[in-house]
């Protein structure tokens, strides 16, 4: 039986972080389709307009235009149940709480690596 194509939305404003995360996703086995959004507003649009639902959303916290907390709230407000994993460089308890309250399913710290993403993909049965 053919393996299901995994669709990931990577929400991150810094290009270097997107490049490394995309490669790490591919190495971890979750990079079949990786769409990118450079801020929360674009992420909400991508989720709303997606032809097929995403299997995973990796959501940065601090971004211009719309931050990760607000984007997560809006995506959940649309009734979308896709797992959202919050990503932050700080990892402070207040950050984690704010993201979980907004509707995130899990939290991981930057920088994203093949190992961290492997754990996330396994947790949501995507690998």
């Amino acid at each position: 039986m053919a393996r299901k194509m995994i669709r990931v939305l990577l929400v991150e404003d810094e290009e270097i972080n997107r490049v490394v995360a995309r490669a790490a996703l591919k190495a971890a086995g979750g990079g079949d389709v990786v769409d990118e959004a450079e801020n929360g507003e674009v992420a909400v649009q991508r989720v709303r307009d997606a032809a097929a639902p995403y299997d995973l959303v990796l959501m940065d916290k601090q971004m211009p235009v719309m931050d990760g907390h607000e984007a997560t709230r809006r995506i959940r407000g649309m009734g979308v149940t896709t797992p959202i994993v919050a990503v932050s460089s700080d990892g402070l308890p207040a950050d984690v709480d704010a993201f979980i309250t907004a509707g995130a399913d899990d939290f991981t710290s930057k920088p994203l690596s093949k190992e961290k993403l492997g754990v996330i993909l396994a947790k949501f049965r995507l690998a």
Partner: peptide, 14 residues
């Protein structure tokens, strides 16, 4: 804010 972004870039390459 700027320095947090720079710190994030530093983290990404170690």
């Amino acid at each position: 804010t700027y320095m947090q972004q720079l710190k994030g870039s530093c983290s990404s390459i170690g």
